[in-house]
Design a binder for these strands. Structure first.
Lengths: 369, 369
DNA sequence: ACCCCTCCCGAAAACGTTTTCGTGTTGAAA
DNA sequence: TTTCAACACGAAAACGTTTTCGGGAGGGGT
C-alpha cells in the first residue's frame, strides 16, 4: 500500500519535473537572480538538498545531485555573495583610501593593491579623501559597518595637519586591520609600508654634493606633510654632514599646490642655484620649464632631481632624474600585509606590527650630468 | 500565584540589568562589532525594540528610546551594512571596470565616478581588466553575484578584438544596469558615454589643413580598438573632404604599445610630414622627443596634436596641443546615468537607453602655431 | 520477525537587520 | 463595572546562504 502511494508520488514528481523543465522560462523569471529556494521549489526538494548538491556533498545521491546541478546551470545560478558575507562575517573586500587618484603615484599603488588582492580573491573598494579630513572620516565610518574586511590608507593632508586620528584608532579597536602607506603617522600602531624618505633625500642631495655643487636648492612642501618633512630633513642633514651651510633662501616651502610658478621663478632668478632637488614631479618639471624660460641650459647651467618616478619625469624634455618610489611594489606589499593579517586572524598575534621599507633608487636621466 | 512568580522574575531582571550596567565592559567584547541582539540582551528588551528605538520610531516610549540610544552610543553601535544589503537587496556599491588605472585618462574617469557616487551614497569598487578578456569576464561574473548594484565599464583591448560580449549581455539580462564609456560597442544595448571621436579627429585634422599643411601624418592604434578606428576614420574623412590624398605611408598603426619609437622615427625621417596627429598622449610626446632628436624645431618645422588632455601634454616641453577628452566629466555622467537607472528601477523603462556625447575641444599649446 | 546500519534527505538555526502584526496593560469614557 | 482606544512592546517573517542534526526508508544479518 505504501508502495503504491509512493510510486504515484514519484510519478507525479517526475511529471512536475518534466513540466517544469518545459515551462521553465515562464515559471522562473529569468530577469532576476535565481536563488536556492526557487530551485528547491521547482525541483520539489529542500533548500538544504540543493545547497548540498551544488557543493558536491557526499550526503546527496548521484541522481539528485546531477538533476540539481543541471537545473542550476540552466538557470545560471550564482550564489549570493551578500548572503555569504553575512554568514561568514567576511566580505572578501578591502578598501584603499587615498588623497587623490589623479596623482600617478597613487594610481600605481592602487594597481599593486588590486593585483595581489585579486590573486587572493579579494575585491578593492577605492575611496578618495580629496585631502579632506571629513571625507576620510566619513568614508571610514561608513565602511567600518561591516562592508569591508580591512583598510589600506594614506593620510590626507588635512588629517596630517590636525593630527586627529580617532577614526583610525576606532576602526582598529573594533578589530579591523589597517595598513598605512607613504603618508603615515607614529601616533597610530599598525602595519605600515613606507620608503625611507629621509635617506632617499639625503642620497639625492649627496649626489649633487659629490658633483661639486655648493648652492643646492630645495623645493618642498609645508612641514605637516609627513613625507615632505622627512625629505626636507634628509636634505638638511646631507648639507650639514658635508659642511655646507643650509641657506633658508635656498629652501622653498610651497603651500598652495595650485599656484607656485612665481615662487619657483623667483628662487631660480634670485638665488641662481647650481642644482635643485624637488620633492615631487610637478615641482621638478615646473622648475625645468622655468629654468628653460630663463635661458638656462639643463643640465649644464643647472641640474635637477625630482621625486617619484612617474610618467612626467620619463616623458619630459629633458627627461628628469628622480628618486624612484615604486608605487606598485608599495601597493603589493601593503595588500600582502593586510591579507596576511586577515587570513591569520585566528592566530591573533596583535601588537606585532611591522613597518616595511621599500627601497628607492636614483634614476639618472637628462636633467643631471 | 502567577503574580508572585512574575514579581520575582521582574526583580531578577532588574538585578541582572543593574549588574549588566555595572559590568558592561566585561560583558560586551568591545573588540568586536556590537549588534542589536547584544544590546537587546543587555537591556533586557527585544531586538525589535532596540531597532525601533534607534530609528526613532513613535512606537517606543521616550524612556526606553533614550536608554537604548545611550547604550548604542556607549558601545559605538553601527548597523551592519551587509545585513542591510541582504534585506534591501541593494548594496549601494557600483563597480567600474577599466583596462588600466595608470593611464591618466582612466584615473580621471574614476575620479568623476567616485565623486558623484559618493554624493549619492554609493561606494565604488574598482576592477582592472589589464586589457585581458578573461580578467574582465572573471570580474564581472564574480561581482554579478549580488555584490554590487551596477557596472560602469570600458572594454579591454582583447574583448574588443574578440567581439565576445556574452558576459555583459548576461549581466544585463539578469537585470543589472551597465553603463559603458569610451571604449564601447554597438553589439551591446545599454547606456553609454562617449566623445565624438570621429568628429574630434576630423576637427584636429582640419585644423592642420586650414594652416595650409598637405603632408599630415597620423599615428594611431590598430583598428580593433574602437576609439582608434573612429579617430582614424575622422582623419581620413577630413583629408578626403578637402581633396587631399590619404597616403598610407603617412599612417602609422601601432600594435605593440611598448616598443614603437623606431616606427615613429622612421615615419618622421622618411616621410618628413609637416604635421602629425597622434591618437594619444604617449604617441604625441614620443613624436615630439624624436622630432627634437632629429633636429626639427617645433612647431616651426613640424606641428603636433595629441589626444586626451592629460598631464603629459601639459608639462611636456614644448607643451602639446591636444584634443581634450574630459575624463572627469565622462565619469560623472556615467555615474549619474547608472544611479538614475538604479533609483528609478521601479519605473523599469527598459530599452530606453541613451548615449551621451561629451564635447571635446582643441587645446592649443606650444606644439602648434 | 527483529535489529542495526547505511543512505538520503529535510528541518532548523545562524548571520544582523527591518517591519508587520499581534497582544497585554493602562487609562478614560460610558 | 464594562468597553474601547492608546500606548508600548515582543514575536516572527523575510533577505539567501551553510551546516548540524535528526530521522525515515531500505537492506542485510541474526
Amino acid at each position: 500500500m505504501h508502495h503504491k502511494i509512493k510510486d504515484k508520488i514519484d510519478r507525479l514528481k517526475n511529471l512536475s519535473y518534466l513540466y517544469s523543465q518545459l515551462n521553465s522560462i515562464q515559471k522562473i523569471d529569468m530577469k532576476r537572480k535565481v536563488t536556492l529556494k526557487q530551485i528547491a521549489k521547482e525541483l520539489d526538494v529542500s533548500i538544504s538538498t540543493v545547497s548540498k548538491s551544488l557543493r558536491d556533498s557526499p550526503e546527496i545521491s548521484e541522481d539528485t545531485r546531477q538533476k540539481v546541478q543541471a537545473f542550476a546551470k540552466l538557470y545560471n545560478y550564482k550564489p549570493n555573495n551578500i548572503a555569504l558575507s553575512l554568514k561568514n562575517k567576511k566580505t572578501k573586500t578591502i578598501c584603499i583610501i587615498i588623497p587623490e587618484i589623479i596623482h600617478h603615484f597613487f594610481a600605481t599603488v592602487i594597481s599593486g593593491v588590486e593585483h595581489v588582492a585579486n590573486e587572493n580573491g579579494y575585491n578593492v573598494l577605492v575611496c578618495l579623501s580629496d585631502e579632506s579630513f571629513d571625507k576620510e572620516v566619513i568614508n571610514m565610518e561608513m565602511l567600518a559597518g561591516g562592508s569591508i574586511d580591512g583598510f589600506i590608507m594614506s593620510l590626507s593632508k588635512e588629517t596630517q595637519q590636525r593630527r586627529d586620528f580617532h577614526h583610525i584608532t576606532e576602526v582598529i579597536n573594533q578589530g579591523m586591520p589597517v595598513v598605512m602607506f607613504d603618508r603615515v603617522t607614529n601616533d597610530i600602531l599598525c602595519d605600515k609600508v613606507i620608503i625611507d624618505d629621509n635617506l632617499a633625500a639625503y642620497n639625492a642631495t649627496r649626489f649633487f654634493i659629490n658633483k661639486g655643487y655648493k648652492k643646492i636648492a630645495l623645493i618642498t612642501t609645508v612641514d605637516y606633510v609627513s613625507v615632505g618633512k622627512l625629505r626636507t630633513d634628509g636634505y638638511t642633514k646631507a648639507m650639514m654632514d658635508h659642511d655646507l651651510k643650509v641657506d633658508p633662501n635656498l629652501i622653498l616651502k610651497i603651500e598652495d599646490t595650485d599656484n607656485f610658478d612665481a615662487q619657483i621663478e623667483a628662487l631660480i632668478r634670485d638665488q641662481k642655484p647650481e642644482a635643485i632637488f624637488a620633492v615631487n614631479e610637478i615641482f621638478a618639471v615646473t622648475a625645468i620649464k622655468i629654468a628653460g624660460k630663463l635661458g638656462l641650459k639643463i643640465p649644464t647651467d643647472i641640474s635637477i632631481i625630482g621625486f617619484t618616478d612617474g610618467i612626467i619625469s620619463k616623458y619630459s624634455t629633458p627627461s628628469i632624474s628622480t628618486v624612484s618610489q615604486n608605487g606598485v611594489k608599495m601597493g603589493e606589499k601593503a595588500a600582502k600585509m593586510l591579507i596576511d593579517r586577515l587570513e591569520n586572524e585566528e592566530m591573533e598575534i596583535e601588537e606585532h606590527y611591522k613597518t616595511e621599507v621599500i627601497e628607492t633608487a636614483l634614476v639618472e636621466r637628462e636633467s643631471t650630468r
